[in-house]
Write a protein that binds this DNA or RNA. Sequence first.
DNA 1: GGTCGGCACGTTATAAGATATCATGGCGTC
DNA 2: GACGCCATGATATCTTATAACGTGCCGACC
Lengths: 163, 163
Amino acid sequence: MTAPRTQIARAEVLCRERGVRLTDQRRRVLEILCAAGRPVGAYEIMDAMREGPRVVAPPTVYRALEFLLEQGLIHKIESLHAFVGCDHPEHPHSSEFLICLECGGVAELKDDAVERSLASVTRESGFLPRRRVVEVMGICARCARKEACRRKEEAERSPGPVD
Amino acid sequence: MTAPRTQIARAEVLCRERGVRLTDQRRRVLEILCAAGRPVGAYEIMDAMREGPRVVAPPTVYRALEFLLEQGLIHKIESLHAFVGCDHPEHPHSSEFLICLECGGVAELKDDAVERSLASVTRESGFLPRRRVVEVMGICARCARKEACRRKEEAERSPGPVD
DNA sequence: GGTCGGCACGTTATAAGATATCATGGCGTC
DNA sequence: GACGCCATGATATCTTATAACGTGCCGACC
Ligand SMILES: [Zn+2]
Ligand SMILES: [Zn+2]
Ligand SMILES: [Zn+2]
Ligand SMILES: [Zn+2]
């Protein structure tokens, strides 16, 4: 994962290069997303922005999110109605996400095999792809380990019926 | 695509086998989804149900949808906030969808390559997958053909500037 | 310098999607 | 006939997202 500061700096550069404006509101939304390092809903972003100088309304947040999505600086996680900062915004892309049901963490993949297989199956059916949504819900490695430990300890303490 | 009638009949059998009840409300929702042959939102389903004997409220629809999802008789399309009947409900599964931005049509895939590549990349990172969401937005073959024809005719009528 | 147009943002209201909570009623068990 | 389970009814509320219209800044152009 990239440090939030770095992400903002990179975004500044990219926007300048592209001749688009990373305004205060837009930067603020991006900062909140990058600092969180996890998916954040639009209204949660709004609440976070209220901490700042002025109160904002939903359209303000959604407009900033729309801009950041267009510029490929963030992604939307459809299955969570939430947004995350992108780790590799240089070339806007669709991406794959692993979403932990336990801790809520999200990992952004960039897997050629998945992309290739999707590309080939769409091509076969004459379908022209524009945007991919690939989200896998499950248990992340860390939570799986934790769970395994918990179970083991429990078993040692009371070696009763095992399920 | 399977005929709506067949789909309902199959659902009846499956539910009986599994010892769960495909009640009137649940069957009605499934019928609406199968008859539509495209993604339908919960509130649209609700409106369709109002045509029938009694008025229903959102929880009724959502409860029916929850049941049908659990039984693998329908799928939810996350990026559309909508639901579709499943073409192969015998073995509940995650599936891949091709969604046309032009006509709104949805095709349910069942592609081993996509599944395998996803499985391998998750396994590598120690992630335990539970549910997959794979939705590709784009232009379906039919709409692409139509669009191509339209362009060609236009070009023949006025062979002006070509883009 | 004035005016015009585009863009970002503010403000209010509302649409669209989803759930919490409690009540009712059928139906099989004991 | 009392009890418990399950599906549904009914009401309210919550969350997510957008529509519509107004204001102010800023650079382009005359
Ligand atoms: Zn990314
Ligand atoms: Zn986790
Ligand atoms: Zn299916
Ligand atoms: Zn189409």
